[in-house]
Amino acid sequence: MNKDVYVLGIETSCDETAAAVVKNGREIVSNVVASQIDSHKRFGGVVPEVASRHHVEQITLVIEEAMNRANLSFADLDAIAVTQGPGLVGALLIGVNAAKALAFAHQIPLIGVHHIAGHIYANRLVTEMKFPLLSLVVSGGHTELVYMKEHGKFEVIGETRDDAAGEAYDKVARALHLPYPGGPHIDRLAHEGSVTIDLPRAWLEEDSYDFSFSGLKSAVMNTVHNAAQRGEQIDAKDMAASFQASVVDVLVAKTVKAAQEYQVRQVLLAGGVAANRGLRAELERKMAEIEGVDLVIPPLSLCTDNAAMIAAAGTILFEQGKRADMSLNADPSLELS
């Protein structure tokens, strides 16, 4: 019988200060997230310097809460996993240096985790992963299709060439005068409106799994602007519905095509945009049409940034023998490999 593995995860890549303890890479023992969203709302977006300051204020409190809720001491931990990148460098530095201090103080193995690997491994907290698998990662900072043959091996087969999907949502929301963060508002309006406005879909080259959302974003802004010049008002509900349809069409079509071409057994939806009802519904509908492929969509709390996903990914790396030393640094443009 193997001994249970307990890993403390720490995540500070953007505007959430998070810590969590995960058992055996699959079971959440504690999961604490301190969101800064109320502070950044007044700026209409995340301000890096403000985010870094909040992380310093929160970091020990959040870790303490995660350890207390887990009812564990540091001596019970097998490893400490921390988001190394990508993300805001000043924000990442807080988590990385706190994790190093903890690993040093208690002589516990330290592991650097890629943020996207974390998002993908959030799925393992819901159900065991079946390889080969495909993961669609969509968030404010990322839009990627990641193929995995086995644990710990990631191959990015498609990614955005300009804006992330979540970024396009935020910008379109601003053009429609919706509050920050705009994603949930567009999703809500989209369900009240109908697809009446003709907007482009960027399919790119036929064999490409890459994405592009800047053209779509510009088309929305131009339509809104031109209508305003004519003294007309675009119906925000219909615009939201039309925009969302365009985004979802491309995301789902490429995901389904890749799932078939790579003959995967599982498709995982990851990242904050996984909360989008339009995307969930369409992906569920299309995936039901192909046989033998499971679709896994984690609950919302595990789709948005959290540290349980970092601990889950870190557990696999720990079991594979990966270790970081005290020179571990934050890397804002870390590659997934």
Binding site: I59, I63, G90, N97, A98, A101, L102
Partner: peptide, 19 residues
């Protein structure tokens, strides 16, 4: 430096808290 001072303070407060 904002970043520099944060690195030292983060390490110091994490060490002090955990020890």
């Amino acid at each position: 430096s904002y970043t520099g001072v944060r690195i030292g303070v983060t390490i110091a407060k994490t060490l002090a808290w955990t020890l």
